[in-house]
Design a protein around this nucleic acid. Structure first.
Length: 309
DNA sequence: AATTTATGCAACCGCGCTCAA
DNA sequence: CTTGAGCGCGGTTGCATAAAT
């Protein structure tokens, strides 16, 4: 893709070629990541300075985690910081070494689309509707909106009859309510894909920013101290309000639990479920509990059969 | 196997800010 | 004070690939 600017110079657009990357890297090596416009004025590349900068920042800069999916920790950081900062992707990215604002933005966009799809399938009640009776079961939309829950994917619904009595467990991140889920017959629970284990990002700090002190009493993974003063954006406010609402939490099965560190389906600790992971590590009805401790179901109750009601 | 649909990501665009001339 | 270049940021688009049919 090419066009000409007012000086009748050819401006190349579109995907970058390997040779262009090399030229750009050489330029940065010589002159540093600045004066992007001079790359074109020096006749090195037929690209705008803007385009050069973007390419460097998003793809060529050293230590970028390109081609690597967001880890659970990174997901949690994004979710929490988005609730605090809003769509300040560049700011959020400073807390994620190796991630760019574009990475964060794309991750969030993808997540929002997924949430939208899920909501269409099983709408999340609004704030006033969250006083649900305590026996109800969280939908996938609940889980995606409530980052302090760990979730177990139950795999294919069609084989649910084979799993009677096998209740996945989810826990609050405060480590309380260590009780089994009383009811897992709700099919809404069968496609939960996100599992965000307890995040220890006490040590994470914005890149090139001052360290922060942890706040041990905070039940969520710790955020930088300076982030605590930022007013929540409406979306995040609603979420946090919902989470701090005991009725909202009570809407989840009592004592949803998932022991920290426990393996779970579709997630290997390096990132959320992905197509590749699913291909490489297919979860089959016959093996889907293989990774769980042998005693994990000992204290679970039988799920009442629907016909038995 | 072929086709369609969904998804994720790279790159562009437009706006706003800063700063030097 | 004005203006324009340079840069950074957030939103959007379009393409490549994966998944589904």
């Amino acid at each position: 893709m090419e066009k000409r600017n007012k000086d009748d110079m050819v401006i190349r657009k579109g995907p970058w070629m390997a040779e262009e990357d090399e030229i750009l890297k050489d330029y940065v090596k010589k002159y540093g990541p600045r004066d992007w416009s001079s790359i074109r004025s020096k006749g090195l590349l037929p690209r705008t300075g803007k385009s050069c900068r973007l390419r460097w920042v998003n793809k060529l800069k050293p230590d970028l985690k390109t081609g690597c999916k967001f880890s659970a920790d990174e997901e949690r950081v994004v979710i929490d910081l988005q609730a605090k900062f809003g769509n300040k992707w560049a700011r959020i990215a400073t807390y994620l070494p190796g991630r760019t604002d574009n990475d964060v933005k794309n991750f969030w966009s993808t997540r929002q689309k997924r949430l939208g799809r899920i909501r269409q399938a099983s709408p999340l009640p609004n704030k006033s509707q969250r006083k649900i009776e305590k026996t109800s079961v969280p939908t996938e939309a609940h889980i995606l909106e409530a980052p302090n829950f760990s979730v177990v994917s139950m795999g294919d619904e069609s084989s649910s009859s084979d799993r009677s009595g096998s209740h996945p467990k989810v826990e609050n991140f405060d480590g309380t309510n260590m009780q089994p889920i009383p009811e897992m017959a709700n099919p809404d629970f069968h496609h939960l894909e996100t599992n965000l284990p307890l995040l220890d990002y006490m040590t994470i700090e914005p890149i090139e920013k001052k360290p922060f002190d942890p706040l041990p009493q905070f039940p969520f993974p710790q955020l930088p101290e300076d982030s605590m003063d930022i007013p929540l954006m409406p979306e995040g406010q609603d979420l946090i309000t919902g989470l701090s609402d005991t009725n909202f939490l009570g809407a989840f099965p009592q004592g949803l639990h998932f022991p920290v560190g426990m393996p779970y389906f579709g997630f290997d600790g390096t990132g959320p479920i992905s197509g590749k992971h699913e291909r490489d590590n297919p979860v089959m009805p016959e093996n889907c509990f293989d990774d769980f401790p042998v005693d994990m179901f000992d204290y679970l109750e039988q799920v009442p059969s629907s016909s038995g009601r």
